[in-house]
Design a protein around this nucleic acid. Structure first.
Lengths: 235, 235
DNA sequence: TCAAAAGTGTTCGGACTACACCCATGA
DNA sequence: TCATGGGTGTAGTCCGAACACTTTTGA
Protein backbone atom coordinates (compact mmCIF):
# COMPACT_ATOMS: atom_id res chain seq x y z
CA UNK A 1 0.00 0.00 0.00
CA UNK A 2 1.11 3.57 -0.56
CA UNK A 3 2.82 5.61 2.04
CA UNK A 4 1.54 8.91 3.31
CA UNK A 5 3.09 11.49 1.03
CA UNK A 6 4.33 14.87 2.10
CA UNK A 7 4.69 13.98 5.72
CA UNK A 8 7.94 14.56 7.50
CA UNK A 9 9.39 11.53 9.24
CA UNK A 10 11.12 11.94 12.54
CA UNK A 11 13.14 10.00 15.06
CA UNK A 12 11.57 8.12 17.82
CA UNK A 13 13.19 7.04 21.08
CA UNK A 14 12.48 5.72 24.55
CA UNK A 15 13.99 6.83 27.85
CA UNK A 16 13.77 4.89 31.10
CA UNK A 17 13.47 6.42 34.52
CA UNK A 18 14.76 3.61 36.71
CA UNK A 19 14.01 3.76 40.40
CA UNK A 20 15.59 1.67 43.12
CA UNK A 21 15.60 1.59 46.90
CA UNK A 22 18.72 0.80 48.92
CA UNK A 23 17.01 0.23 52.25
CA UNK A 24 17.19 3.84 53.24
CA UNK A 25 16.74 6.08 50.26
CA UNK A 26 15.22 6.24 46.82
CA UNK A 27 17.75 6.02 44.04
CA UNK A 28 17.89 6.67 40.36
CA UNK A 29 19.98 4.79 37.82
CA UNK A 30 21.78 7.07 35.38
CA UNK A 31 24.27 6.54 32.62
CA UNK A 32 27.31 8.52 31.75
CA UNK A 33 27.22 9.69 28.17
CA UNK A 34 30.27 8.70 26.24
CA UNK A 35 29.18 10.35 23.02
CA UNK A 36 28.42 13.78 21.77
CA UNK A 37 26.40 15.83 22.21
CA UNK A 38 26.48 16.41 25.93
CA UNK A 39 29.40 14.05 26.27
CA UNK A 40 30.37 13.30 29.88
CA UNK A 41 27.05 14.40 31.23
CA UNK A 42 24.55 12.21 32.97
CA UNK A 43 21.47 11.00 31.27
CA UNK A 44 18.61 8.57 31.50
CA UNK A 45 19.16 5.27 29.78
CA UNK A 46 17.53 5.43 26.39
CA UNK A 47 17.59 4.22 22.85
CA UNK A 48 15.92 4.48 19.49
CA UNK A 49 12.87 2.45 18.70
CA UNK A 50 13.71 0.00 15.95
CA UNK A 51 11.69 -0.67 12.89
CA UNK A 52 9.88 -3.81 13.86
CA UNK A 53 9.68 -3.02 17.51
CA UNK A 54 6.93 -1.62 19.68
CA UNK A 55 7.88 1.14 22.11
CA UNK A 56 7.30 -1.25 25.04
CA UNK A 57 9.69 -3.73 23.51
CA UNK A 58 12.23 -1.01 22.97
CA UNK A 59 12.00 0.11 26.57
CA UNK A 60 12.41 -3.44 27.81
CA UNK A 61 15.32 -4.00 25.51
CA UNK A 62 17.05 -0.87 26.72
CA UNK A 63 16.43 -1.76 30.33
CA UNK A 64 17.73 -5.24 29.89
CA UNK A 65 20.80 -4.07 28.05
CA UNK A 66 21.69 -1.87 30.99
CA UNK A 67 20.67 -3.94 33.97
CA UNK A 68 20.42 -7.47 32.69
CA UNK A 69 16.99 -7.71 34.26
CA UNK A 70 13.81 -8.73 32.50
CA UNK A 71 10.18 -8.78 33.54
CA UNK A 72 10.49 -5.60 35.45
CA UNK A 73 7.61 -3.40 36.49
CA UNK A 74 7.49 -0.64 33.92
CA UNK A 75 4.86 1.65 32.58
CA UNK A 76 4.59 4.29 29.97
CA UNK A 77 4.83 7.66 31.62
CA UNK A 78 4.53 10.40 29.04
CA UNK A 79 5.72 11.29 25.59
CA UNK A 80 8.01 14.24 25.19
CA UNK A 81 8.05 15.85 21.80
CA UNK A 82 9.00 19.50 21.90
CA UNK A 83 10.56 20.22 18.52
CA UNK A 84 13.82 21.43 20.04
CA UNK A 85 14.18 18.96 22.87
CA UNK A 86 17.09 17.19 21.22
CA UNK A 87 19.51 19.69 19.69
CA UNK A 88 20.88 17.20 17.19
CA UNK A 89 17.67 16.58 15.38
CA UNK A 90 14.06 16.29 16.16
CA UNK A 91 13.39 13.24 18.29
CA UNK A 92 10.26 12.30 20.10
CA UNK A 93 10.83 10.28 23.22
CA UNK A 94 8.48 8.10 25.20
CA UNK A 95 9.46 8.04 28.84
CA UNK A 96 9.00 4.81 30.77
CA UNK A 97 9.07 4.57 34.51
CA UNK A 98 10.57 1.39 35.96
CA UNK A 99 10.83 0.04 39.49
CA UNK A 100 13.53 -2.50 40.13
CA UNK A 101 14.92 -4.41 43.04
CA UNK A 102 18.31 -2.86 43.37
CA UNK A 103 19.83 -6.15 44.56
CA UNK A 104 18.83 -7.95 41.41
CA UNK A 105 20.59 -5.30 39.46
CA UNK A 106 23.81 -5.57 41.35
CA UNK A 107 24.13 -9.17 40.30
CA UNK A 108 23.98 -8.39 36.64
CA UNK A 109 25.37 -4.95 36.12
CA UNK A 110 26.55 -4.12 32.65
CA UNK A 111 29.70 -2.08 32.96
CA UNK A 112 29.62 -0.82 29.40
CA UNK A 113 27.38 2.06 30.20
CA UNK A 114 29.13 3.49 33.21
CA UNK A 115 25.88 3.49 35.05
CA UNK A 116 25.56 4.70 38.60
CA UNK A 117 22.90 4.91 41.23
CA UNK A 118 22.29 8.40 42.53
CA UNK A 119 20.30 9.43 45.53
CA UNK A 120 17.11 10.77 44.09
CA UNK A 121 17.45 13.85 46.25
CA UNK A 122 20.91 14.40 45.05
CA UNK A 123 20.91 13.69 41.37
CA UNK A 124 23.05 15.63 38.93
CA UNK A 125 21.59 17.80 36.23
CA UNK A 126 20.68 15.70 33.23
CA UNK A 127 20.79 16.31 29.51
CA UNK A 128 17.97 17.54 27.31
CA UNK A 129 14.61 17.41 29.06
CA UNK A 130 15.51 14.43 31.22
CA UNK A 131 15.17 16.42 34.42
CA UNK A 132 11.61 17.11 33.47
CA UNK A 133 11.03 13.43 32.89
CA UNK A 134 12.39 12.52 36.29
CA UNK A 135 10.29 15.19 37.94
CA UNK A 136 7.17 13.83 36.33
CA UNK A 137 8.07 10.26 37.19
CA UNK A 138 8.50 11.23 40.83
CA UNK A 139 5.09 12.85 40.89
CA UNK A 140 3.53 9.91 39.17
CA UNK A 141 5.17 7.49 41.56
CA UNK A 142 3.85 9.39 44.56
CA UNK A 143 0.44 9.52 43.04
CA UNK A 144 0.18 5.91 42.14
CA UNK A 145 1.85 4.52 45.24
CA UNK A 146 -0.66 6.31 47.43
CA UNK A 147 -3.37 3.97 46.15
CA UNK A 148 -1.71 0.95 44.67
CA UNK A 149 0.86 -1.39 46.14
CA UNK A 150 3.51 -0.77 43.50
CA UNK A 151 6.35 0.02 45.85
CA UNK A 152 6.76 -3.66 46.64
CA UNK A 153 8.44 -3.86 43.27
CA UNK A 154 11.40 -2.07 44.77
CA UNK A 155 11.93 -4.55 47.57
CA UNK A 156 13.66 -7.93 47.61
CA UNK A 157 11.61 -11.05 48.02
CA UNK A 158 11.88 -10.93 51.78
CA UNK A 159 11.65 -7.65 53.61
CA UNK A 160 10.60 -6.31 56.98
CA UNK A 161 7.83 -3.92 57.83
CA UNK A 162 10.22 -1.24 59.05
CA UNK A 163 11.98 -1.48 55.67
CA UNK A 164 8.69 -1.09 53.89
CA UNK A 165 7.88 1.87 56.04
CA UNK A 166 11.14 3.62 55.34
CA UNK A 167 10.54 3.04 51.66
CA UNK A 168 7.23 4.84 51.90
CA UNK A 169 8.80 7.51 54.03
CA UNK A 170 11.48 7.96 51.41
CA UNK A 171 9.01 8.29 48.58
CA UNK A 172 6.88 10.81 50.43
CA UNK A 173 9.76 12.46 52.24
CA UNK A 174 8.04 12.37 55.58
CA UNK A 175 7.56 10.10 58.57
CA UNK A 176 4.59 7.94 59.35
CA UNK A 177 3.32 6.63 62.63
CA UNK A 178 4.71 3.11 62.79
CA UNK A 179 1.76 1.65 64.71
CA UNK A 180 -0.76 2.84 62.19
CA UNK A 181 1.47 1.92 59.30
CA UNK A 182 2.02 -1.67 60.25
CA UNK A 183 -1.63 -2.17 61.14
CA UNK A 184 -2.73 -0.90 57.76
CA UNK A 185 -0.22 -2.94 55.88
CA UNK A 186 -0.98 -6.14 57.70
CA UNK A 187 -4.72 -5.64 57.45
CA UNK A 188 -4.50 -5.93 53.67
CA UNK A 189 -3.50 -9.55 54.04
CA UNK A 190 -0.90 -9.02 51.35
CA UNK A 191 1.98 -10.10 53.53
CA UNK A 192 3.04 -13.54 54.68
CA UNK A 193 5.08 -13.64 57.84
CA UNK A 194 8.31 -15.62 57.73
CA UNK A 195 10.04 -17.44 60.52
CA UNK A 196 13.34 -15.63 60.21
CA UNK A 197 14.22 -12.20 61.40
CA UNK A 198 16.41 -9.53 59.95
CA UNK A 199 18.96 -8.77 62.62
CA UNK A 200 21.04 -6.31 60.68
CA UNK A 201 19.16 -3.20 61.53
CA UNK A 202 18.35 -3.80 65.15
CA UNK A 203 19.21 -5.96 68.07
CA UNK A 204 15.75 -7.29 68.55
CA UNK A 205 15.41 -8.12 64.91
CA UNK A 206 12.40 -7.64 62.68
CA UNK A 207 10.42 -10.43 61.09
CA UNK A 208 10.71 -10.90 57.38
CA UNK A 209 7.61 -10.94 55.23
CA UNK A 210 6.94 -12.09 51.73
CA UNK A 211 4.36 -10.79 49.33
CA UNK A 212 1.37 -13.00 48.72
CA UNK A 213 1.77 -12.87 44.97
CA UNK A 214 -1.72 -14.03 44.20
CA UNK A 215 -3.39 -11.49 46.39
CA UNK A 216 -0.98 -8.89 45.16
CA UNK A 217 -2.06 -9.38 41.59
CA UNK A 218 -5.72 -9.50 42.48
CA UNK A 219 -5.52 -6.37 44.60
CA UNK A 220 -3.33 -4.52 42.27
CA UNK A 221 -5.96 -2.20 40.97
CA UNK A 222 -7.90 -1.88 44.18
CA UNK A 223 -7.43 1.10 46.38
CA UNK A 224 -5.26 0.77 49.38
CA UNK A 225 -4.42 3.54 51.70
CA UNK A 226 -0.98 3.25 53.12
CA UNK A 227 -0.48 6.98 52.92
CA UNK A 228 -2.49 9.18 55.27
CA UNK A 229 -3.72 12.50 53.87
CA UNK A 230 -2.42 11.91 50.37
CA UNK A 231 -3.46 15.44 49.39
CA UNK A 232 -0.57 16.74 51.43
CA UNK A 233 2.02 14.90 49.42
CA UNK A 234 0.76 14.74 45.92
CA UNK A 235 0.94 17.69 43.65
CA UNK B 1 25.01 19.81 14.27
CA UNK B 2 25.03 16.38 12.76
CA UNK B 3 22.01 14.19 12.64
CA UNK B 4 21.86 10.73 14.15
CA UNK B 5 22.98 8.45 11.36
CA UNK B 6 21.54 5.05 10.65
CA UNK B 7 18.31 5.62 12.46
CA UNK B 8 15.04 5.06 10.72
CA UNK B 9 12.66 8.00 10.77
CA UNK B 10 8.99 7.39 11.16
CA UNK B 11 5.69 9.21 11.07
CA UNK B 12 4.21 10.75 14.07
CA UNK B 13 0.56 11.64 14.64
CA UNK B 14 -1.96 12.64 17.28
CA UNK B 15 -5.48 11.33 17.79
CA UNK B 16 -8.12 12.96 19.95
CA UNK B 17 -10.70 11.15 21.99
CA UNK B 18 -13.35 13.81 22.39
CA UNK B 19 -15.97 13.33 25.07
CA UNK B 20 -19.20 15.25 25.45
CA UNK B 21 -22.32 15.03 27.58
CA UNK B 22 -25.77 15.79 26.20
CA UNK B 23 -27.59 16.01 29.51
CA UNK B 24 -28.34 12.34 29.62
CA UNK B 25 -25.52 10.34 28.15
CA UNK B 26 -21.83 10.39 27.46
CA UNK B 27 -20.96 10.93 23.83
CA UNK B 28 -17.98 10.60 21.61
CA UNK B 29 -17.16 12.77 18.62
CA UNK B 30 -16.07 10.79 15.56
CA UNK B 31 -15.22 11.66 12.01
CA UNK B 32 -16.15 9.89 8.85
CA UNK B 33 -13.10 9.01 6.81
CA UNK B 34 -13.27 10.29 3.31
CA UNK B 35 -9.90 8.90 2.27
CA UNK B 36 -8.29 5.57 1.91
CA UNK B 37 -7.45 3.39 3.66
CA UNK B 38 -10.55 2.49 5.61
CA UNK B 39 -12.58 4.93 3.62
CA UNK B 40 -16.13 5.42 4.89
CA UNK B 41 -15.31 4.07 8.28
CA UNK B 42 -15.44 6.00 11.51
CA UNK B 43 -12.34 7.20 13.20
CA UNK B 44 -11.01 9.47 15.89
CA UNK B 45 -10.05 12.92 14.74
CA UNK B 46 -6.33 12.99 14.19
CA UNK B 47 -3.50 14.48 12.24
CA UNK B 48 0.20 14.42 11.72
CA UNK B 49 2.51 16.37 13.93
CA UNK B 50 4.17 19.06 11.91
CA UNK B 51 7.83 19.92 11.90
CA UNK B 52 7.89 22.86 14.22
CA UNK B 53 5.06 21.77 16.37
CA UNK B 54 4.87 20.07 19.74
CA UNK B 55 2.46 17.18 20.10
CA UNK B 56 0.28 19.28 22.39
CA UNK B 57 0.08 21.99 19.78
CA UNK B 58 -0.80 19.43 17.16
CA UNK B 59 -3.60 18.02 19.28
CA UNK B 60 -5.00 21.47 19.91
CA UNK B 61 -4.78 22.36 16.27
CA UNK B 62 -6.60 19.21 15.28
CA UNK B 63 -9.28 19.76 17.88
CA UNK B 64 -9.78 23.33 16.84
CA UNK B 65 -9.97 22.46 13.20
CA UNK B 66 -12.79 20.07 13.93
CA UNK B 67 -14.76 21.83 16.64
CA UNK B 68 -13.73 25.44 16.39
CA UNK B 69 -13.08 25.40 20.12
CA UNK B 70 -9.88 26.41 21.83
CA UNK B 71 -8.69 26.24 25.41
CA UNK B 72 -10.31 22.91 25.96
CA UNK B 73 -9.43 20.52 28.73
CA UNK B 74 -7.14 17.98 27.17
CA UNK B 75 -4.44 15.68 28.40
CA UNK B 76 -2.02 13.25 26.94
CA UNK B 77 -3.37 9.77 27.41
CA UNK B 78 -0.97 7.25 25.97
CA UNK B 79 1.25 6.70 22.99
CA UNK B 80 0.41 3.88 20.63
CA UNK B 81 3.26 2.58 18.57
CA UNK B 82 2.79 -1.04 17.54
CA UNK B 83 4.73 -1.42 14.31
CA UNK B 84 1.69 -2.58 12.37
CA UNK B 85 -0.95 -0.34 13.84
CA UNK B 86 -1.32 1.68 10.66
CA UNK B 87 -1.30 -0.56 7.60
CA UNK B 88 -0.11 2.18 5.29
CA UNK B 89 3.16 2.79 6.96
CA UNK B 90 4.53 2.85 10.42
CA UNK B 91 3.04 5.70 12.39
CA UNK B 92 3.25 6.35 16.08
CA UNK B 93 0.27 8.13 17.53
CA UNK B 94 -0.12 10.04 20.75
CA UNK B 95 -3.68 9.83 21.98
CA UNK B 96 -5.15 12.87 23.72
CA UNK B 97 -8.29 12.80 25.78
CA UNK B 98 -10.48 15.91 25.60
CA UNK B 99 -13.58 16.98 27.48
CA UNK B 100 -15.73 19.56 25.82
CA UNK B 101 -19.00 21.28 26.46
CA UNK B 102 -21.13 19.87 23.73
CA UNK B 103 -23.11 23.10 23.41
CA UNK B 104 -20.04 25.12 22.62
CA UNK B 105 -19.30 22.72 19.88
CA UNK B 106 -22.68 22.97 18.30
CA UNK B 107 -22.16 26.66 17.75
CA UNK B 108 -19.04 26.17 15.75
CA UNK B 109 -19.23 22.86 14.02
CA UNK B 110 -17.01 22.37 11.03
CA UNK B 111 -18.96 20.47 8.46
CA UNK B 112 -15.93 19.52 6.42
CA UNK B 113 -15.20 16.49 8.48
CA UNK B 114 -18.60 14.87 8.60
CA UNK B 115 -18.28 14.57 12.31
CA UNK B 116 -20.97 13.06 14.45
CA UNK B 117 -21.64 12.51 18.09
CA UNK B 118 -22.20 8.90 19.05
CA UNK B 119 -23.51 7.54 22.27
CA UNK B 120 -20.44 6.17 23.98
CA UNK B 121 -22.28 2.95 24.67
CA UNK B 122 -23.24 2.67 21.10
CA UNK B 123 -20.25 3.68 19.09
CA UNK B 124 -19.34 2.04 15.81
CA UNK B 125 -16.21 0.04 15.31
CA UNK B 126 -13.30 2.33 14.57
CA UNK B 127 -10.28 2.05 12.34
CA UNK B 128 -6.82 0.87 13.33
CA UNK B 129 -6.38 0.71 17.07
CA UNK B 130 -8.79 3.54 17.80
CA UNK B 131 -11.16 1.28 19.72
CA UNK B 132 -8.33 0.50 22.06
CA UNK B 133 -7.68 4.19 22.52
CA UNK B 134 -11.30 4.86 23.38
CA UNK B 135 -11.35 1.98 25.83
CA UNK B 136 -8.31 3.34 27.59
CA UNK B 137 -9.70 6.86 27.62
CA UNK B 138 -12.89 5.63 29.25
CA UNK B 139 -10.94 3.86 31.95
CA UNK B 140 -8.78 6.85 32.51
CA UNK B 141 -11.78 9.14 32.70
CA UNK B 142 -13.41 6.96 35.31
CA UNK B 143 -10.23 6.80 37.25
CA UNK B 144 -9.49 10.45 37.25
CA UNK B 145 -13.05 11.66 37.73
CA UNK B 146 -13.36 9.60 40.89
CA UNK B 147 -10.91 11.92 42.59
CA UNK B 148 -10.72 15.12 40.62
CA UNK B 149 -13.49 17.45 39.52
CA UNK B 150 -12.79 17.15 35.82
CA UNK B 151 -16.30 16.29 34.73
CA UNK B 152 -17.34 19.90 35.13
CA UNK B 153 -15.52 20.46 31.87
CA UNK B 154 -18.35 18.67 30.13
CA UNK B 155 -21.08 20.93 31.46
CA UNK B 156 -22.21 24.35 30.32
CA UNK B 157 -21.53 27.35 32.47
CA UNK B 158 -24.79 26.94 34.34
CA UNK B 159 -26.02 23.51 35.29
CA UNK B 160 -28.15 21.86 37.94
CA UNK B 161 -27.18 19.30 40.52
CA UNK B 162 -29.41 16.62 39.01
CA UNK B 163 -27.64 17.20 35.70
CA UNK B 164 -24.29 16.84 37.37
CA UNK B 165 -25.46 13.67 39.01
CA UNK B 166 -26.66 12.12 35.80
CA UNK B 167 -23.32 12.98 34.27
CA UNK B 168 -21.57 11.02 37.00
CA UNK B 169 -24.08 8.25 36.68
CA UNK B 170 -23.41 8.12 32.97
CA UNK B 171 -19.69 7.93 33.39
CA UNK B 172 -19.91 5.18 35.98
CA UNK B 173 -22.94 3.52 34.51
CA UNK B 174 -24.72 3.27 37.81
CA UNK B 175 -27.02 5.28 40.06
CA UNK B 176 -26.04 7.26 43.11
CA UNK B 177 -28.06 8.25 46.13
CA UNK B 178 -29.17 11.78 45.36
CA UNK B 179 -29.09 12.96 48.98
CA UNK B 180 -25.53 11.89 49.52
CA UNK B 181 -24.50 13.13 46.13
CA UNK B 182 -25.76 16.66 46.50
CA UNK B 183 -24.47 16.93 50.02
CA UNK B 184 -21.01 15.89 48.94
CA UNK B 185 -20.97 18.17 45.96
CA UNK B 186 -22.20 21.18 47.87
CA UNK B 187 -19.85 20.56 50.77
CA UNK B 188 -16.87 21.17 48.51
CA UNK B 189 -17.89 24.79 48.16
CA UNK B 190 -17.13 24.57 44.47
CA UNK B 191 -20.62 25.59 43.40
CA UNK B 192 -22.32 28.95 43.45
CA UNK B 193 -26.08 28.86 43.54
CA UNK B 194 -27.90 30.97 40.96
CA UNK B 195 -31.27 32.65 41.27
CA UNK B 196 -32.80 30.99 38.24
CA UNK B 197 -34.10 27.51 37.91
CA UNK B 198 -34.04 25.07 35.08
CA UNK B 199 -37.64 24.18 34.41
CA UNK B 200 -37.08 21.95 31.43
CA UNK B 201 -36.54 18.71 33.21
CA UNK B 202 -39.09 18.96 35.96
CA UNK B 203 -42.13 20.86 37.04
CA UNK B 204 -40.64 21.99 40.27
CA UNK B 205 -37.48 23.14 38.57
CA UNK B 206 -33.91 22.77 39.79
CA UNK B 207 -31.63 25.61 40.74
CA UNK B 208 -28.76 26.40 38.46
CA UNK B 209 -25.24 26.49 39.80
CA UNK B 210 -22.01 27.89 38.46
CA UNK B 211 -18.53 26.69 39.16
CA UNK B 212 -16.44 28.81 41.45
CA UNK B 213 -13.55 29.00 39.01
CA UNK B 214 -11.00 30.08 41.56
CA UNK B 215 -11.77 27.32 43.97
CA UNK B 216 -11.99 24.91 41.09
CA UNK B 217 -8.46 25.63 40.01
CA UNK B 218 -7.14 25.53 43.53
CA UNK B 219 -8.86 22.25 44.32
CA UNK B 220 -8.08 20.66 41.05
CA UNK B 221 -5.38 18.37 42.31
CA UNK B 222 -6.93 17.73 45.67
CA UNK B 223 -8.91 14.61 46.29
CA UNK B 224 -12.61 14.78 46.20
CA UNK B 225 -14.88 11.89 46.61
CA UNK B 226 -18.00 12.20 44.56
CA UNK B 227 -17.96 8.53 43.76
CA UNK B 228 -18.69 6.08 46.56
CA UNK B 229 -16.70 2.85 46.56
CA UNK B 230 -14.57 3.72 43.57
CA UNK B 231 -13.03 0.24 43.59
CA UNK B 232 -16.28 -1.08 42.29
CA UNK B 233 -16.15 0.99 39.15
CA UNK B 234 -12.55 1.36 38.22
CA UNK B 235 -10.68 -1.40 36.60
C1' DT C 1 -55.42 16.05 42.40
C1' DC C 2 -51.91 13.64 40.84
C1' DA C 3 -47.51 12.51 38.94
C1' DA C 4 -42.68 13.51 38.73
C1' DA C 5 -38.61 15.35 40.03
C1' DA C 6 -36.20 18.44 43.63
C1' DG C 7 -34.66 19.05 47.93
C1' DT C 8 -33.54 18.10 52.72
C1' DG C 9 -31.74 15.36 57.97
C1' DT C 10 -30.50 11.70 60.83
C1' DT C 11 -28.49 7.65 62.37
C1' DC C 12 -25.06 4.11 62.27
C1' DG C 13 -20.82 1.90 61.62
C1' DG C 14 -16.24 1.72 60.10
C1' DA C 15 -11.99 3.76 59.22
C1' DC C 16 -8.42 6.70 60.30
C1' DT C 17 -5.64 9.23 63.65
C1' DA C 18 -3.37 10.23 67.66
C1' DC C 19 -1.08 8.59 71.25
C1' DA C 20 2.37 5.42 75.03
C1' DC C 21 4.20 1.51 76.65
C1' DC C 22 6.48 -3.10 76.81
C1' DC C 23 9.66 -6.41 74.41
C1' DA C 24 13.89 -8.52 72.84
C1' DT C 25 18.56 -8.26 72.26
C1' DG C 26 23.54 -7.13 71.60
C1' DA C 27 26.87 -4.38 73.34
C1' DT D 1 21.90 -2.68 82.51
C1' DC D 2 21.04 0.06 79.11
C1' DA D 3 20.30 1.77 74.59
C1' DT D 4 18.05 0.76 70.32
C1' DG D 5 14.66 -0.33 67.34
C1' DG D 6 10.44 -3.71 67.02
C1' DG D 7 6.02 -4.61 68.10
C1' DT D 8 1.32 -4.01 70.00
C1' DG D 9 -3.74 -1.67 71.90
C1' DT D 10 -7.23 1.86 72.62
C1' DA D 11 -10.18 5.75 72.60
C1' DG D 12 -12.10 9.47 70.07
C1' DT D 13 -13.35 11.62 65.87
C1' DC D 14 -14.83 12.13 61.45
C1' DC D 15 -16.55 10.71 57.23
C1' DG D 16 -19.35 8.13 54.28
C1' DA D 17 -23.36 5.20 53.53
C1' DA D 18 -27.95 3.99 54.07
C1' DC D 19 -32.34 5.40 54.28
C1' DA D 20 -37.83 8.30 53.58
C1' DC D 21 -40.46 11.97 53.47
C1' DT D 22 -41.97 16.71 52.11
C1' DT D 23 -42.16 20.30 48.51
C1' DT D 24 -43.26 22.32 44.19
C1' DT D 25 -45.80 22.83 40.22
C1' DG D 26 -47.46 21.76 35.52
C1' DA D 27 -50.58 18.87 33.39
Amino acid sequence: MNRYPLQKHILFAVDCIIFGFDGHDMKLLLVHRAIKPEKNKWSLMGGFVQQQESPEDAANRVLKKLTGIEGVYMEQLHTFGRPDRDPVERTVSIAYSALIDIHEYEKQINADYHAEWFLLKNKPKLIFDHDEMVELAKKQLRYKAAFHPILFELLPEKFTIPQLQSLYEGVYDTVFDNRNFSRKVLSTGLLIKQKQKDKLNSKKGAFYYKLDKKKYKADFKSFLNFVPNPDKFIL
